[in-house]
Amino acid sequence: MKKNRIIAQIGLYVILVLLAILFLFPLVWMVVSSFKTEPEIFADLKSFKAFVPYTFSLDNYTGVFERIPFIRYLLTSTLYVSVIVLLGLFVNSLAAYAFARMQFKGRDLLFSVVVALIIIPFESILLPLYLIIDEFDWLNTYQALIIPFIANAFNIFMFRQFFLNLPKELEESARMDGASTLRIFFQIVIPLSKPVFITVALLTFITHWGDFMWPLIATTDDSVRPLQVGMQFFFHQPPVKYGHVMAALTMATIPLLIIFVFFQKYYVQGIASAGMKN
């Protein structure tokens, strides 16, 4: 009986290791190749050496910096995504608080409109949005990348759910003491709502970090071009060098990796709770 269990465990590990190889080999190849020369990358394709980091040259990395404004792409992405996150947290949580706690005419109707908006896929409003942004003369500006994405119906919904579950007593006693609604919101509600703020911030950051289609059409040059679009242009820009592209891809992966390492717990909780609630 015990012997059977050991065999079962070994079998399980074999499956896990094979799967881990399947999920990791492209990424390992990417990182390892970024430190190799072009002939080495091609020579190693047919052998296990493709995954062995036996040379460590930074030439591909300097090559990337010579050919594209990589740092600029990176800063652009970081900046515009961070601004969406910060302004979004503010605007959406304020709206959600009003929907959760205040009495005003048309509240329930307005909220059901907001919920209905969640269904509209961004891809279906792409072209009219482009024309509106053009009307504002915002094409190829940060405004185009940021302002349409500050308000987010789903995030309002998430915030409201959380606020509804907060105990009312603290807010009520603060109101008795004469605190204004805005003050109650900032000094009492926000500190109690840290988890939902972190989750929404994280999900918003990750979503917009991966934005591609909109920046592709809303930006026309490197001055405001974000990382994802910059990568796509670099990939199709001759001469296509595997080493250069691998170095660029490796660097482009680092920011999100950092986010995950630091916020892993919140992220997993976030996607899990999003899954449970629905």
Binding site: L94, I120, P128, I147
Partner: peptide, 25 residues
Amino acid sequence: YTSYGFVGPAIILLFVFLILPAVLA
């Protein structure tokens, strides 16, 4: 006024950048 001040920014943004383009489409 406070209530509308709270929901206003989000509603205006949603209108201009989501509802309006959807209707236009």
